[in-house]
Design a protein around this nucleic acid. Sequence first.
RNA 1: GCCGAUGUGGCGGAACUGGCAGACGCACGGGACUUAAAAUCCCGCGGGCCCUAAAGCCCGUACCGGUUCGAUUCCGGUCAUCGGCACCA
Length: 828
Amino acid sequence: MQEKYSFSEIEPKWQKKWIEEKAYKAEEHSDKPKFYALAMFPYPSGNLHIGHVRNYSIVDVIARFKRMQGFNVLHPIGWDSFGLPAENAAIKHQTPPAEWTWKNIANMKRQLQEMGISYDWDREVATCHPDYYKFTQWMFLEFYKHGLVYKKKAAVNWCPSCATVLANEQVVDGACERCDTPVTKKDLEQWFFKITDYAQVLLDDLDKLPGWPEKVKTMQRNWIGRSEGTEVDFKVENHTDKIRVYTTRVDTIFGVSYVVLAPEHPLVKELVAGTQYEQEAQTFIDKMKGLNEIARTSSETEKEGLFTGAYCINPYSGKKVPIWIANYVLLEYGTGAVMGVPAHDERDFEFATKYQLSIRRVIRPEEMPVEAKDEPVKEADHGKGLMVNSGEYDGLANMAAWEKMSDQAEREGFGQRKVNFRLRDWLISRQRYWGAPIPMVYCEQCGIVPVPQDQLPVLLPDDVVFKAGENPLATSDSFKETTCPKCGGKAHRETDTMDTFMCSSWYYLRYTDPRNNTLPFSKEAVDHWMNVDQYVGGVEHAILHLLYSRFFTKALRDFGYLKIDEPFENLLTQGMVCLDGTKMSKSKGNVVSPEEIIGKYGADTARLFILFAAPPERDLEWSDQGVEGCFRFLNRVWRLVGQFVESAQQSTGNAAQVFGELDSAAKKMRRQTHLTIQKVTTDIGTRSNFNTAVSSIMELVNALYLYKEQATAKIEVEREALESIILLLAPFAPHITEELWGELGNRESIHKQSWPQVDEAALVQDEVTVVLQVNGKLRERIQVPAEISAKELEQQVRNLPKLQEWTQGKEIVKVVIVPGKLVNLVVK
RNA sequence: GCCGAUGUGGCGGAACUGGCAGACGCACGGGACUUAAAAUCCCGCGGGCCCUAAAGCCCGUACCGGUUCGAUUCCGGUCAUCGGCACCA
């Protein structure tokens, strides 16, 4: 055995062997229970960054652990390889996006292999490969068949820098999530996925996910944004039209001072046509259109409105109320019209105060005297209370009135209860080249015609021109011009591609059957492997990818392709990797290169540090010295094995017999070995606390160093401890443990060994330390037989010579005993 | 504003079900080995009190209060930091 731990020789040697032997291939037919471990697949930007290393190290520990526990593990990897950076590179370097992308994939694949991650490389997928995007297009058509895809003209989010539209989910603080450019609105005809059909079930089924972080579920709940309310019609005076408003507080409707329409509301133009208000209203509408999302909808923005000159009638009170238009009302939500109740809504209060509209209380808090009901309202009150100034409803509790008033609207036909969601349909069109082409054809005769599924894929053409700000597919005549699949006549193709989130919404299903040429996956494969048992990735996907994937799963279930309701059983959202307290990023220049670290210390050290430095869901502060510490630890393990191998000849070989007659030091050593096995097993398996798993292995190493120096040290006890250390460490540091396992005389790979079992007998103690407290304060530790009764223990404590000192003549009023742990004397 | 999370030594963090606060690692200080350095090994390492030592005592988990024999852990309130949502009617 080499004296020095030489990772640069060991690591490539084993990596090569693992790949050649397909050591981590998932078994097709197996009696073992299955386990599906998955990391969010990377975008092939060119190089692995440290966040990837963290993500993949975590999943690899889980995969290797489960394998050793006897599971048939599916641990695949692939590439989320469509997207804008490839196209930007194409413009910048004049290289085709495909070439740039495949080069990056090759490089990052090499880097992953240098980390020793135990992937089943036979299942690798890349979303930009025609064999993959063929089925992304298949998905589009399948959703289309089931009425979940439609085209509509809408004011959509437009990123001027990326020259494409964006989904609502991709607009962060009014700016493009990719390039930070402020997003503008554009009226375009685009393809939408009807995710809103699934809003309720996407919300409800979050309760079926106990294995997800509360944080992520809350974010999804907020994003879906369910609210229960009532729609009510206000008749417009001298007009045939009605204004339908949506309110969650129909109980306050007797307090309506005005009704407000969104500036884009179609009724606005009608109301002002030919009146003195027309000119001003038009100016107002134009101004609102020119504003971007932030300026228009931020709660910071001052409320601005304009009277239309028209009035409508409150159906409950019969009162006439003025109709306004205002910047704060959104056309897309509810009915695009709102009633203003200044006494009970802060926003309405602010608006009414600004424009001197009336303010009338209709709910009084219980502690407020009835006589005070008409006193001036100083601030909006949205609390509970009793109805006042509300006709026949006066005196009712407002929640009861809410129900009765909704009943009245439904009975008399001027309104109805309504549930609304903030979630909008998912806009999937992109005016870009490097994505899956939308498989649709426009025929002069037949109109919109889907490409038949057996004619897929619609391939991306090579003869496109990349120019900033232009849709490249529109420049390719060979692509654009086609024949109608229905009538054979002249037609042209849709030139938009799909949002790359389409590709990533189903990739976890493809891994179950990655080379299937006729279907995205077979029923047998997907039924066998799904759900993903453990999913790990960054929290930045809490809404986008995770919501879309849940939607896809539910829709495919409803189409009959799946049996499951949810794709990801357990979700772990790992924290960021930081340097000097801030997230590592290229723009800040505070990055650590994984390649450099691996070159200097090896992959095992890099993996070990990143798992040891913090619990996985928390942010991790990078520390070069910390890495050094982990490297020292692996060296310590290396030397431990080296010293053992030299001295191991004396072993008698009959461990069971030796373990039957041990001295107390040996018993202690065995106990720690098995306690460590127990702890590491639960730390990995149920708590996902890899940091404490590593630290307890370190403790075991320290303990073994001390034990083996003792004159009476038993070689069998040493061997058991040492083998346990290496086995427990194997998921974290696969290369060094593979090497050391061989040095201990084993032929078969350590990664094919069974996970060590706890020997309950080794945990039994003859004597335990009991803590003695006086009034909850620690006073003494005493050694007592493990089997001692509470009575005997109390007696022994009462006989302690120092007892007088602690009680100081006071009386012992109570004795609390926790068997095997603690005695607390309560004195007065 | 609403929702969620977090707050423990010089630092990363541990304490799993209310029972020894600070495991493990880093940094730092001292020592051994060495001609020397590196590597390695050993000792110390929250603050204070006590002449020294042994030993012991007091304070201490953001802050204030409560429950309890006993609180980092449970409850109420306050503050701070981070993240998400934010005119959604």
